[in-house]
Computed example of a mutant assay.
Amino acid sequence: MTNANFNLGRYLFDGKIVIGRADKDAIDIVSERDDLPRVLASPESAAAVIRRIPAGSARMLAPLDPRARVFAIAINYHAHGAEAKALPPSRPLMFYKAPSNFVGHGDSLNPNKQLTAKFDYEGEIAVVIGRTCKNATLENALSFVVGVCALDDGSARDLSKVALGNPETATVLWPDWTANKGLDGGSALGPTITCGPDILSALRERSLRITTRLNGEQVQSESMKEMIFSTEQIIATLSSYMTLLPGDVIATGTPAGVGVARNRFLTTGDQLEIEVSGLETLCVKVG
């Protein structure tokens, strides 16, 4: 979009949702409508500043269009597969998350206590699609990516499988990704989408690192070099199934150290930080 990296965010300002480029002290509004996919797909729109406002005058929202799709990859770090006692998949193993699952930086996660007693975190590196993508190749897959952000894939571990037949006598448990991963407000995305040549070069080199801290303690930290499937492989596979659109988000998988492996689940008041190298840290608390 421009020759320098910048952070593109979605904000609530003066009673309406706007799109803006953020720095430490101010936000440059580039659209006064909630039209993030259009801005992501248009370098001219992302560069055209309408007005500048103080950073503290707007509330940051998850940088996710309400109509966008979020795709996530399961078992994509070797060590996480080992802690889950799962063999590496033969191809990227995917599931879907809805926009309503996500809160933004500084917000509170909804632990959905009426549904789960095992609310878990999964820190991930997410890439955002900037132009329509179908049947991408390994060679051109990253050309469809406009930026990167941090993501917490909230999980209800006690809803991950459902008994087939009578729950008291069933011998077969079937995966239920939607129940496990689809809790309203149980996941987080942000703070902003970092766009530009440096972050995309790091993505290409697989030099980005994902680090998760729970109440200040580091619980996850791995480089993208430890991924089973590269971002290019993920995009090529996913776009062979369906057309990807500007604003769609792909979470590339979580490393080892998730709560279920530690028998340590999230509780009210917990502070969660998801840090991707080169990006601002995504911070949320558990409501």
Rank of each mutant, 00 (worst) to 15 (best):
T2S: 14
N7H: 00
N7V: 13
G9D: 00
Y11R: 06
L12M: 08
F13L: 12
D14G: 04
K16S: 04
G20N: 02
K24H: 03
D25C: 03
S31A: 07
P37H: 08
S42C: 14
E44Q: 15
S45H: 10
V49M: 11
R51N: 14
R52L: 03
A58T: 04
A62W: 03
I75R: 15
N76K: 13
A79N: 12
A79E: 15
A84R: 12
A84G: 08
P89S: 01
L93V: 04
M94Y: 15
S100H: 13
N101H: 04
L109A: 05
N110D: 07
N112K: 00
L115T: 04
L115S: 03
E122L: 02
I125C: 15
V127P: 01
V128Q: 02
K134E: 07
L138R: 08
A141C: 07
S143D: 15
D153V: 10
A156V: 09
V162I: 14
L164S: 13
P167K: 11
P167L: 10
E168N: 10
E168L: 15
A170N: 13
A179E: 07
L183R: 01
P191Q: 02
G196C: 13
S201Q: 08
S201M: 10
S207C: 12
T211L: 04
T211I: 09
R213C: 13
L214F: 00
N215S: 09
Q220D: 05
S223G: 12
M224Q: 07
I228P: 05
A236P: 14
T237L: 12
M242C: 14
L244H: 01
L244I: 10
G247H: 07
G247K: 06
G247M: 13
D248S: 06
D248I: 10
A251C: 15
G253D: 03
P255K: 10
G257D: 09
A261N: 11
R264S: 15
G269P: 08
S277R: 12
S277K: 09
L279H: 00
L279I: 07
V286N: 00
G287L: 04
G287H: 12
